[in-house]
Design a binder for these strands. Structure first.
Lengths: 116, 116
DNA sequence: CCATCATATGCCGATATCGGCATGCGTCAA
DNA sequence: TTGACGCATGCCGATATCGGCATATGATGG
């Protein structure tokens, strides 16, 4: 019955799904269109089981969809889930543009917004 | 000396750093300005060690900077590292807008965009 | 120099994650 | 029906990651 609980639920969250380089590659490839597992595996140089597992994660967070096509199973992109990530990072846009003054500059005074 | 190598190098990569919800919270908070560790911990309701550890990860990937301020150590945002993430997801913008036709629609034919 | 505040670290336990390999299962062709 | 193909899974081993707790370290004020 769990003794201390380590690590908070991670997977099944888009941010986590795209934290894996290979999964990002899969998504990038799928922009060109649907593809069967084997083909993806081949193009990315990874084994089939490995590819399937990554696809499973992507499917669980809703970034890809699959549909059967005879013997094969075609995976297609469903990028809608990436939008929240884009927007979240977008919330920092003014910070990477405004060269974050007070943070790097030679600010001599404003120690911190500690009211007291 | 490692026998089979499991899991590819993860940390020290921005995508991974922001995969942690709490780290995202820290970044969001820092948009309001620099803050000492204890204050962050307090505002986020987490222990100090935990906060320090997350800050360390963020620092290692360059998303935050720290500077000493007397007894304290102020952490400030350096969002430049988020830009790549924003751009990467931006590469999928047309896909979440164009309601990815062929993927969900009742496509009866185009099995796959294999050129040949 | 000593007590104290502010942080960083080390160590441990409990998972979660990844990869490989073998195998299960469904579909299609002969 | 039987085989071959295409893909999903299960199981295992090797880490990586997170959290808690105690403690080391650094700086400050007496």
């Amino acid at each position: 019955m769990m003794a201390a609980m380590a690590r908070a639920a991670t997977t099944s969250d888009v941010f986590n799904a795209i934290a894996e380089p290979q999964r990002r590659e899969i998504l990038a490839l799928l922009r060109a269109g649907e593809r069967p597992v084997t083909e993806l595996a081949q193009e990315l140089g990874m084994t089939q089981p490995r590819t399937s597992k990554h696809l499973r994660v992507l499917r669980e967070v809703g970034l890809v969809r699959d549909r059967k096509a005879g013997k094969q199973r075609l995976y297609g992109l469903d990028a809608r889930g990436l939008r929240p990530v884009h927007e979240w990072t977008g919330g920092f846009e003014r910070f990477w543009n405004e060269s974050f003054d007070r943070a790097s500059a030679s600010s001599p005074a404003p120690i911190s917004p500690r009211t007291r």
